[in-house]
Design a protein around this nucleic acid. Structure first.
Length: 599
DNA sequence: GCCGTTTTCGGCCCGACTGTTTTCAGTCG
C-alpha cells in the first residue's frame, strides 16, 4: 500500500504476520493464552478501517493503537516494529528455529501445532512434499500416536489440499445447503434445518457448511437412526466423522459439510453456538461466567445448581445475559455485544442499529437489456422490478468501448433512452424508469460518450472495464479523473473486485471514496456475488468518509434482480441502516434530488 | 500478551470426535 508516496505495510499484511507469529508460537509450545492474544490482535487489526501504518508515525497520537481492543503495550510495539522494519523481534527469532513452510502443514486436516512440532523434531519435516514422502515411506508409523489410519488420512488430506478449491461463494454454498437440506428432510421426524456458521452470518465466502437439524427424530434416545440417514446421503463423497449427534463429510467439489442433530429444547442454544463467530461466542461465554452462568450448545446453565436458565431460543439466551438479540450478520465480536447490552438497558446511545432490510430497497440503478449484453427487454425488466416491489429502476446499458457487449455509440444511447422513456409512459406510474448508461472510463479517465449525450440521461454510471493489469496509481488516477466529469452520478463497481478470482485491479480505494464523497458522486456496491465489489470493511470505510452509497444488482436478466439479497447481507454486516443507502429513497424524484445535481 | 463494576495479578470458553489408547492427547469448530 502507498501512503504519501511511501510504500507502507497495510492492515491485511500486519494481521497476516501477527497470525503467522501466533501459529509459530503454538508450534513452539508456548502459553496458549499468549498465542490467543496474537490471534485476537490479528483479527482486531483486520477489522480496522483506518490504516495502522498512519498511527505509527512519530507525530501521531501514541495512544491511538492502544485504544483498539486486544492491542496493549506489547502488541503496539510489535505493530510499530512491523511497519518500520517489515518484521518484529519475536517473529524473527521464531523463524530461526522453524521454517515458514510449516505454516502450510497446519492447513492439512488433522494437523495441529503439536503434530507439526513433532514431525519437525523427529523427522525434520517442514513442508508438504517432504511430509508426503515420509508418509508414503511409512516413516510416520514409528512415531507415537501415529498409525496406519492416520497415515492414510493424511495422504488423502494432502491430495485434497493440492487440488484444493478453497472457499465457496455464499450463493453457491446456499444452493448446496438447500439441496442437502431437502435430502435430510426426507427422514421422518426432522422438522427444521437451519444453515448456521458463516453462511448464517452472511460472510461473502464460506469455508464449510454448518447445518443444524432438529425435530422429534433428534431427541437423544432416537437420534442414532437420523444420524445414520445423514451419514448415508447419496451426495457424500467422503465421510469424515460420524458421532452421536454429528456427521461431517465432503462433497465431490471438496466443500465440507458439518451436520448436527440436536433436540428441540436446546434449539436456541445450538443455533447461537453454531452460528458463531468463534470470537463472538468466546466473549459471550466470558460474559456468562461473570454472571455465574455457563453457556454451551445445549443450554445456558446456572453454575451453582445446573438449572437451565435459557435454551429454546436465541432471544432468551441473549436476554438472560442482559442483551438484546443480535442479528447474525453482526456477530463478529466487533462491538455488537456492547451495543446489544446498551440496547437491552434501554440506553439511547450506542445501541444496536436498525439494520437495512431487503424491503427498504426501493430502486435499482444499474441493469442491462438485450440492447447490449442483457437477456431481456426494457419492459421485461420493468415488470420484474415491479413484481419485486421496486418503485424505480435505471436502465444502464453499456457504451461503445465495450464492443464485445455490443456497446452503444452516442446515437444508439439516445435512441435507447427514448425507448426507455416510452416504456416509462406505458407503465402508467406503477414504476418509474430512469434512462441511463453504464459508460466506460477510458485510459486517462475520460468517458467514452459525448458530454452532450450524457447531459440528456438521468443516470450515468461510470465504470472501469479494462486494463486491470495497470499499476494501482494509474488505475486510481483514472477513476479519480472520471469522478471529476460533472455528468458522473454513480461510480460503478469501484474496485472491479471479482470474488475468488485473482485479478481484481488494485486501487487506492480510500482516496477514491474521499473524492467521491466530496463531489457527491454515489458509490455503487455491486450486489451480485460473482462481482461482489465492496466488502463490509470497505462499506464501513465509505460510511465513515461520508460517501453516498447505492446497492445495485447490475442485472443482465430478470432473476439477477434477486442478487439484491446478497448485497443487503453485506450492507448489514457493515452495520448500515436504510438511511445510509440512497436507493432506499421512496420515489425516483427523491432519489434524483439526493444524487449529484446535473450540470 | 491482554485485561479489570471481584482490577496490576491471576485469570483467560466449551464440548465432541478420532486414533491409538486402556484413560487420553490432539484437533476441530
Amino acid at each position: 500500500m502507498h501512503l504519501n508516496g511511501k510504500n507502507v505495510m497495510d492492515n491485511i499484511t500486519i494481521a497476516r504476520l501477527l497470525d503467522e507469529t501466533a501459529a509459530l508460537l503454538e508450534i513452539d509450545g508456548q502459553d496458549p493464552f499468549r498465542v490467543r492474544s496474537y490471534r485476537r490482535a490479528a483479527e482486531a487489526v483486520e477489522q480496522q478501517t483506518t490504516q495502522l501504518a498512519t498511527l505509527t508515525e512519530p507525530d501521531s497520537d501514541p495512544k491511538a493503537l492502544l485504544a483498539i481492543a486486544g492491542i496493549g503495550k506489547g502488541m503496539a510495539q510489535n505493530i510499530r516494529d512491523l511497519v518500520a522494519t517489515g518484521t518484529m523481534p519475536l517473529r524473527a527469532e521464531l523463524l530461526t528455529k522453524y521454517k515458514p513452510t510449516m505454516l502450510e502443514l497446519l492447513r492439512l486436516p488433522g494437523m495441529g501445532p503439536k503434530t507439526v512440532a513433532m514431525l519437525w523434531s523427529a523427522l525434520a519435516v517442514a513442508d508438504i512434499d517432504t511430509l508426503e514422502e515420509a508418509a508414503k515411506a511409512g516413516h510416520l508409523l514409528k512415531l507415537p500416536r501415529m498409525g496406519q489410519k492416520f497415515t492414510e488420512k493424511l495422504l488423502k488430506g494432502i491430495a485434497d489440499h493440492k487440488k484444493n478449491t478453497g472457499r465457496f461463494r455464499i450463493d453457491q454454498a446456499t444452493a448446496f445447503a438447500d439441496r442437502i437440506s431437502a435430502l435430510i428432510r426426507e427422514f421422518p421426524g426432522i422438522e427444521t434445518i437451519t444453515p448456521a456458521g458463516s453462511l448464517r452470518r452472511g460472510r461473502e465466502t464460506v469455508g464449510d457448511l454448518d447445518l443444524l437439524v432438529t425435530g422429534p427424530a433428534c431427541e437423544p434416545d432416537v437420534v442414532a437412526a437420523a444420524v445414520d440417514h445423514v451419514a448415508a446421503l447419496p451426495l457424500i463423497d467422503k465421510l469424515i466423522a460420524k458421532g452421536q449427534n454429528k456427521v461431517s463429510f465432503t462433497l465431490r467439489n471438496q466443500l465440507q459439510v458439518d451436520v448436527r442433530l440436536l433436540p428441540r429444547a436446546s434449539y436456541g442454544a445450538a443455533l447461537q453456538y453454531f452460528t458463531g463467530s468463534k470470537h463472538h461466542n468466546v466473549t459471550l461465554r466470558q460474559r456468562a461466567i461473570k454472571r455465574g452462568l455457563t453457556l454451551s450448545e445445549y443450554a445456558l446453565l446456572r453454575v451453582e445448581d445446573n438449572v437451565i436458565v435459557a435454551a429454546a431460543t436465541e432471544q432468551e439466551i441473549y436476554n438472560a445475559l442482559d442483551m438484546a438479540w443480535i442479528p447474525p450478520e453482526l456477530r463478529e465480536n466487533c462491538g455488537e455485544l456492547e451495543a446489544a447490552a446498551a440496547s437491552f438497558a434501554g440506553k439511547a446511545e450506542g445501541g444496536l442499529p436498525t439494520l437495512i432490510t431487503r424491503e427498504d430497497i426501493r430502486g435499482d440503478l444499474h441493469m442491462h437489456t438485450f440492447e447490449t449484453d442483457g437477456a431481456c427487454s426494457i419492459r421485461d425488466m420493468a415488470e420484474a422490478a415491479l413484481a419485486r416491489g421496486l418503485k424505480y429502476i435505471a436502465i444502464t446499458d453499456h457504451s461503445k468501448n465495450l464492443a464485445m457487449t455490443n456497446g452503444m455509440d452516442d446515437a444508439r444511447a439516445l435512441a435507447h433512452a427514448a425507448r426507455i422513456r416510452q416504456v416509462n409512459t406505458e407503465m402508467e406510474g406503477r414504476i418509474t424508469l430512469l434512462a441511463g448508461v453504464e459508460v466506460d472510463i477510458l485510459g486517462a479517465g475520460e468517458l467514452d460518450l459525448e458530454d452532450s449525450t450524457l447531459a440528456q440521461l438521468d443516470i450515468v454510471v461510470a465504470s472501469v472495464h479494462s486494463r486491470f493489469d495497470q499499476p494501482a496509481e494509474q488505475m486510481t488516477d483514472r477513476v479519480l479523473a472520471a469522478l471529476e466529469n460533472p455528468h458522473t452520478r454513480i461510480l460503478g463497481h469501484p474496485t472491479g473486485r471479482k470474488l475468488l478470482r485473482r485479478d481484481p485491479y488494485a486501487i487506492h480505494l480510500e482516496k477514491v471514496l474521499k473524492r467521491a464523497a466530496e463531489l457527491g458522486v454515489a458509490v455503487e456496491h455491486n450486489a451480485a456475488p460473482a462481482r461482489a465489489d465492496l466488502n463490509d470493511l470497505h462499506l464501513r470505510m465509505a460510511k465513515q468518509l461520508g460517501c453516498r452509497l447505492v446497492v445495485n444488482t447490475d442485472a443482465h436478466a430478470i432473476e439477477d434482480l434477486d442478487y439484491i439479497r446478497w448485497g443487503i447481507t453485506q450492507l448489514r454486516r457493515a452495520w448500515l441502516t436504510a438511511a445510509d443507502v440512497l436507493n432506499t429513497q421512496p420515489t425516483a424524484e427523491a432519489l434524483l434530488a439526493n444524487l449529484r445535481p446535473k450540470p
